[in-house]
Design a protein around this nucleic acid. Structure first.
Length: 1125
RNA sequence: GCCCUAGUGGCGGAAUGGUAGACGCGCUCGACUCAAAAUCGAGUGUCGAAAGGCGUGGGGGUUCGAGUCCCUCCUGGGGUACCA
């Protein structure tokens, strides 16, 4: 009987289905194991040979685990919502449901042929209402929860409401004044429903906010990033603009730290973990406040010697210590002070007066810097502190200031008199300007401050390098920063406006790819809190509004981008780190000794950062801050084919629907085209939108919604009362082995980890992490093939008559090596051809003759030679073509390894392979190609080897005439050794997912058994079990032939018996100076001394040692002998 | 740029720091056959007649011994990005 795989596979496929042998239940008597493949999107194109690579691997593993006595959950389903089906619906009107069902049927048919052991009774589809009911339910949980940072877990929003009702925002560390104003418990209770809801929206884990989307007016819809190319819509090429729209978001950033820490507990590749770590992007640093400079006045000016403003009469530490107090005083003056101020302000006396201005460590009531005069208005308290006042006066004198004092009563009694006294004193004093003071003539801008400077505001920056603050010579804020308008001085208004217009015209992608340095000066200056330097504030694209505070202190000496910016705008560079003792250290490395940096001079960078952080916090000008690169995840799509939100609007407020209303079923619509006003096609289904509860949300959920929790549904796929029953989740816990492509590293794998942690916080799942072990399978690439078309243009009309000319690959190679110029041989050829068709070769644009490569169907050149007739049939438009052959009269095509894709005509369909070789062969060959995690091109050249192996294995059981060869004779030790060597290798290699070497071992084993002429049941039976995970069909057939009535897939994996593997002697490779020169057999009991004696006496060894005593003798038992001479 | 990953015969690939190239394809020769397919046997890194030399992307290092560990450079693949 010949090995007839077609009949066998058909027979067993039916048998397995009839008996439901892959049905899985929660069997408490066995340990559980959950093997999962990443959720496929059922594309209309069906499977190609690349898709099943991971599925075959996981199926082998699942089957192996079953044989090892585990209760294995190994399900399959479909991530069925998605853009392609919707796009097809827009184009053809076919409902996405129909397209999707058809694609799923194709997938299942194809998967079925390969012999996977999925329990199809557990299939889930995300687009099935009984499934997405629970996607919606989880969304409601997210909406109804907030993240309690004190407990570091999510909990019901009710606990937050209770907190607000009890103590408002008082002592609530999570409160951020950027989000909303602080309130008391009483105020909370007094808020309207709307006000309360708006506040809660800042805490919900699913929340609404405004964000920019790609709006395409012409298409009337919002586009995804990959649907936008060069600022235009990919379809149609219409303009796309950024538009703010209200969107749903998931507050995944609350989980950033846990997502990061959780990675340490997972059995994932470091590459994968690194990708997630980089994506989350944790950075420790500080937020530091920079005060803005105050108005500079004529005469005070800027001290060009110190770089400090002329009004600056203090030191940085006193400034930092007192500036807040001074501001308070300004806002809350005494009655007398206020009366005086009203008469002094705005140069009323002809002199510029400042109030509550810092001089040394004092804050006098008023001061005229130019005249060096301090004016104090003394309240009653001064009667009791004469001594202190005395000391203060002398201190101020030392700083060069005179003092004039008035009592409150004097001010109240006769203000005119007081002002007159002040004025005459000022008039009598000489000006004391700084050297190099600026004047209004040269620097009008500094005399016309920005609104924020006038208001004495401040700007916060985020930095991970607080140690470099002494090198901060300018500040950069994002063009979208909310303070831009108030930082812009009148003189800089136009420049800033122009710059912002330029920035707005650019897409995110363009901004990211921009290598030029661009920016604009706002006109404002900030004060470096540590050295008082006055530093300009610029706008620049390279600072992003969404990260940190949207502002940086720029340190050109220690940051590449800052340095480039400084070069471009002519800004100073102050070196602050000496890296001379770290040769090879780059600007980015956090090493070196601090210089030019005051109190941290000489410190190592690491220590300096620490010292600076402490100082900053001690001075109260900033605080430590951990930032994450990761953003909250957008959760809205203005699309039809996705999960509807269980949300209705009453007025403008979103309200969750009660769970009893779930699922909110996606309605049928007449058109899948967008509504045109930015809402999804659902907006047109007015009957559906308007409900008694309110108006439905018309956005739908994104692709990752359904795939973020599907692994839980497989545990209990048909449960109508819960996403999965508690006892089932408790049994299955989480996925033990998850297989899929690395392209999901930062999307799906982060979202599902977050959902899982959220469900864990709420007590629905016992585990913190959903996927314990993760393995990425490599891609199977296609091998594309090319023909070469010669093309030219001519000014006469014969060009249209002359047939197309295809040249063999040698001509193309010559063309390439000739600098993309055709060789004389081809020139002659074209000339002859044109002549033949009555044209004149002179009219050809010879500079423009090209050879282009064209993809062709790979089946038309299986051995590298083109099937010319087949090609003409395949492309009738090229029927009238000339094919120029090489010297061997062949037309050779060239190859390239590329992604497998329809458009490259390099797709190999597994159905074709299975038809030709069978599923068992296909499965084993996919594994035989190489290591699972490596990408490799599909090339079925070697598949014959696997097919041959299966036939050989079959012939161990049957002879030529189809009679059974299996004997019940006792097996020899040699035969047992072959068996157990194989069993050992197979089980070890399956455990480490090295399936390629398993296949090799099966081949070796079969060859050895043939050599031994062994057809004994005692050997073959265990082998059939071991082969079953790889080749399930042939194994079940042979198992039955051995007389078993139950399936081989219900058997137990045979134990390895080490006793057959014990060797008594070993053939030692004898190397001299590390080079193997001989092999000598020694008993494994022999010790070093005995072996040494024998080795050194050996002829070959003697020849190499020339009889000398070796320098060294290395003996590794059972491994090697090395003689060093 | 940064991160990850790989580089071994004509090809896919194997090799706990211990005999490089297992296994398979392809190729060569042979057997069976009228012939072909299938099957079976022998050979197959490279230079050399042989002895032997050389060989795991290049260069350097550690080691008795390096494809494997370290440094550095080159090339391919994947990911990611003005993240302060």
């Amino acid at each position: 009987m010949e090995f007839d795989f077609r009949a066998i596979e058909k027979k067993w496929r039916k048998d397995w289905e009839d008996k439901g042998i892959y049905r899985v239940t929660e069997d408490a008597s066995k340990p559980k194991y959950y093997v999962l493949d990443m959720f496929p999107y059922p594309s209309g194109a069906g499977l190609h040979v690349g898709h099943p690579l991971g599925y075959v691997a996981s199926d082998i593993y699942a089957r192996y685990k079953r044989l090892k006595g585990f209760n294995v959950l190994h399900p399959m389903g479909f991530d069925a919502f998605g853009l392609p089906a919707e796009q097809y619906a827009i184009e053809t009107g076919t409902p996405p449901q129909v397209t999707t069902d058809k694609a799923i049927a194709t997938y299942k048919e194809q998967l079925g042929k390969i012999g996977f052991s999925y329990d199809w009774s557990r299939e889930v589809k995300t687009c099935d209402p009984s499934y997405y009911k629970w996607t919606q339910w989880i969304f409601l949980q997210l909406f109804g929860s907030w993240y309690n940072r004190e407990k570091d877990k999510a909990e019901s929003i009710d606990t937050l409401i209770a907190r607000f009702a009890q103590s408002g925002t008082d002592g609530f560390a999570q409160f951020d004044k950027e989000d909303h104003a602080p309130f008391t418990a009483a105020e909370w209770k007094g808020f309207s429903e709307e006000e309360q809801q708006h506040i809660l929206m800042h805490y919900r884990l699913a929340y609404q906010s405004y964000s920019e989307v790609n709006w395409c007016e012409a298409l009337g819809t919002v586009l995804a990033n990959d649907e936008v190319k060069d600022g235009k819509s990919e379809r149609g090429g219409y303009p796309v603009e950024r538009r703010k729209m209200r969107q749903w978001f998931l507050r995944i950033t609350e989980y950033s730290d846990r997502l990061l820490r959780g990675l340490d507990t997972l059995d994932w590749s470091e590459a994968m973990k690194d990708m997630q770590r980089n994506w989350i992007g944790r950075s420790e640093g500080a937020i530091i406040q920079f005060n803005l400079t105050q108005t500079l006045s004529k005469g005070e000016g800027l001290n060009t010697n110190t770089g400090k403003p002329g009004f600056y009469h203090t030191d940085p530490l006193s400034w930092n210590a007192n500036i807040e107090k001074a501001k308070e005083h300004r806002h809350d003056p005494t009655e007398a002070e206020e009366i005086v101020w009203q008469r002094l302000r705005g140069n009323a006396t002809g002199h510029k007066i400042r109030r509550q201005h810092l001089i040394g460590s004092y804050i006098p009531d008023f001061v005229c810097i130019l005249k060096r005069l301090v004016i104090e208005i003394d309240g009653p308290i001064h009667n009791d502190q004469q001594e202190a006042d005395q000391e203060r006066t002398s201190d101020l004198r030392r700083l060069g200031f005179e003092i004039i004092r008035f009592k409150n009563e004097a001010v109240f009694a006769n203000i005119d008199n007081v002002i007159q006294q002040i004025k005459s004193r000022l008039d009598s004093l000489p000006d004391v300007p700084y050297d190099g003071a600026i004047t209004s003539e040269t620097n009008e801008d500094v005399l016309a401050p920005s609104p924020l400077e006038r208001a004495g505001g401040e700007v916060a920056v985020f930095t991970t390098r607080p140690d470099t603050i002494f090198g901060a010579t300018f500040m950069v804020i994002a063009p979208e920063h909310e303070l831009v308008a108030s930082l812009t001085t009148p003189a800089q208004q136009k420049e800033v406006d122009d710059y912002i217009t330029y920035v707005k015209s650019r897409s995110d992608i363009e901004r990211q790819q921009e290598k030029r340095v661009t920016g604009a000066f706002t006109g404002s200056y900030a004060l470096n809190p540590f050295n008082g330097a006055r530093i300009p504030i610029y706008l620049a694209e390279y600072v992003l509004a969404g990260y940190g505070t949207g502002a940086i202190m720029a340190v050109p000496a220690d940051d590449e981008r800052d340095r480039k910016f400084a070069e471009k705008f002519g800004l100073p560079v102050i070196e602050v780190i000496d890296k001379s003792m770290y040769p090879g250290a780059t600007i980015e490395d956090k090493v070196g000794k601090m210089i030019n940096s005051d109190f941290i001079n000489g410190m190592e960078v690491k220590d300096a950062i620490k010292a600076m952080l402490e100082k900053v916090e001690a001075l109260g000008i900033g605080k430590r801050q951990v930032n994450y690169r990761q953003r909250d995840a957008g959760y809205s799509r203005q699309r039809y084919w996705g999960e509807p939100f269980p949300i209705v609007y009453k007025g403008d407020l979103p309200y969750p629907l009660p769970v009893s209303e779930l699922p909110v079923v996606l309605p049928d619509v007449t058109s899948y085209k967008p509504s045109g006003d930015g809402r999804s096609p659902l907006a047109n289904a007015t009957d559906w939108v308007n409900t008694s509860h309110g108006q439905r949300e018309t956005d739908t959920m994104p692709g990752y919604a359904g795939s973020s929790w599907y692994f839980l549904r497989y545990m209990d796929p048909n449960n109508p009362d819960a996403f999965a029953a508690k006892e089932k989740i408790d049994y299955w816990q989480n996925v033990d082995l998850y297989l899929g492509g690395s392209e999901h590293a930062v999307g799906h794998l982060l979202y599902s980890r977050m959902w899982h942690k959220f469900l864990h916080d709420l007590g629905y799942v016992p585990t913190e992490e959903p996927f314990q072990k993760l393995v990425n399978q490599g891609m199977i690439q296609g091998v594309s093939k090319f023909v070469y078309l010669l093309s030219w243009e001519s000014s006469d009309s014969t060009v249209h008559k002359v047939p197309y000319v295809f040249v063999s690959k040698e001509f193309y190679n010559d063309y390439l090596s000739n600098g993309k110029v055709i060789t004389p041989r081809l020139t002659t050829l074209i000339e002859d051809l044109i002549k033949e068709y009555g044209g004149d070769a002179k009219n050809v644009f010879w500079d423009n003759v090209k050879i282009n490569d064209w993809h062709l169907d790979i089946r038309l050149a299986e051995d590298g030679k083109l099937d010319i007739e087949g090609y003409k049939k395949w492309r009738p438009d090229f029927e009238r073509s000339v094919f120029i052959l090489n010297d061997n009269q062949e037309y050779l095509v060239d190859f390239a390894v590329e992604k497998m894709s329809k458009s490259k005509y390099n797709v190999v369909n597994p159905d074709d392979v299975i038809e030709k070789y069978g599923a068992d062969c296909f499965r084993m060959f996919e594994m035989f190609l190489g290591p699972l995690d490596q990408s490799k091109p599909w090339d079925d050249q070697g598949i014959d080897g696997v097919a041959k192996f299966l036939r050989k294995f079959w012939r161990l059981f049957y002879d030529d005439k189809g009679a059974s060869r299996v004997s019940d004779e006792a097996a020899t030790d040699a035969e047992y050794k072959v068996l157990h060597k194989t069993l050992k290798k197979i089980s070890e290699d399956i455990e480490r997912l090295a399936f390629n070497t398993c296949v090799s071992q099966f081949m070796i084993c079969t060859n050895e058994l043939i050599e031994l002429k062994c057809t004994k049941r005692a050997i073959l039976e265990p082998l059939v079990i071991a082969l079953a995970p790889f080749a399930p069909f042939i194994s079940d057939e042979l198992w039955a032939a051995l007389g078993h009535s139950d399936s081989v897939h219900k058997a137990t994996f045979p134990a390895v018996e080490e006793k057959y593997l014990v060797e008594s002697s070993f053939s030692y490779p004898i190397s001299i100076n590390g080079k193997v020169r001989a092999n000598l057999q020694f008993d494994l009991n022999m010790g070093e001394a005995e072996v040494k004696a024998a080795v050194l006496a050996n002829d070959v060894v003697l020849k190499w040692t020339e009889g000398k005593e070796p320098k060294k003798f290395i003996f590794v038992k059972g491994r090697i002998v090395n003689v060093v001479v």
